[in-house]
């Protein structure tokens, strides 16, 4: 009899265990079996994930909390993947005097040469404006907290119609000069 009670208890816990997901904006949501949902705060305690509920109770989260995409909302990354403008970014761009080189690889890594010094880092596209032919690149991001990007730098790059001439708009605003880079390959 005790074994039956234990088995039924475990079964009922599993049956009513809540599901947790992380939204794109960083919020963690608990999906309840009764069709409702609730925002919770996720903490780590002694290596265990604990969900703090707004009613003052808590629940251990035994599984990984996946990040889910908003359906119907085309994400920047999706747009970037299909954008011809972004595709034209891949390759080596060099200023006429050779002092600046941006080398974009398809795997999201890049090499930057500034003032005769090279450094390797990663990049991702945070915004694409096909009409203005501008790309906002997030270069060297350290971490992300919801909508906050921490570390690295944002650079706005303008690519001309020929897909071979790039203007670094961020450089222009900071250094008051038009930094033009030509696509070498």
């Amino acid at each position: 009899m005790p074994k039956k009670i234990l088995f039924l208890s475990i079964l009922s816990i599993l049956a009513f265990a809540s599901e947790f997901v992380t939204l794109e904006d960083g919020r963690v949501i608990m999906l309840k079996d009764d069709g409702r949902y609730e925002e919770v705060t996720l903490i780590n305690k002694n290596g265990k994930q604990i969900a703090l509920k707004k009613d003052g109770t808590w629940e251990e989260v035994s599984q990984e909390v996946p990040v889910v995409e908003t359906i119907g909302k085309k994400t920047t990354q999706n747009r970037a993947a299909s954008s011809e403008l972004v595709k034209s970014l891949i390759g080596r761009w060099e200023s006429k005097n050779g002092a600046f080189v941006y080398e974009f690889l398809p795997d999201g890594t890049m090499r930057i040469k500034r003032d005769n010094r090279w450094r390797s880092t990663k990049y991702k596209v945070d915004e694409v404006n096909e009409k203005k032919r501008n790309i906002v690149l997030n270069i060297g991001e350290g971490s992300r907290l919801g909508f906050l990007s921490i570390g690295g730098e944002h650079r706005t790059l303008h690519i001309e119609e020929d897909n071979k001439t790039m203007h670094d708009e961020s450089y222009r605003v900071k250094h008051l000069r038009d930094l033009v880079l030509i696509k070498e390959r």
Binding site: D126, E127, V136, N138, F147, L148, S149, I150, G151, G152, E153, H154
Partner: peptide
């Protein structure tokens, strides 16, 4: 909603 590309550095 109008604020984008927020970078803390």
């Amino acid at each position: 909603a109008d604020v984008q590309n927020i970078k803390v550095t």
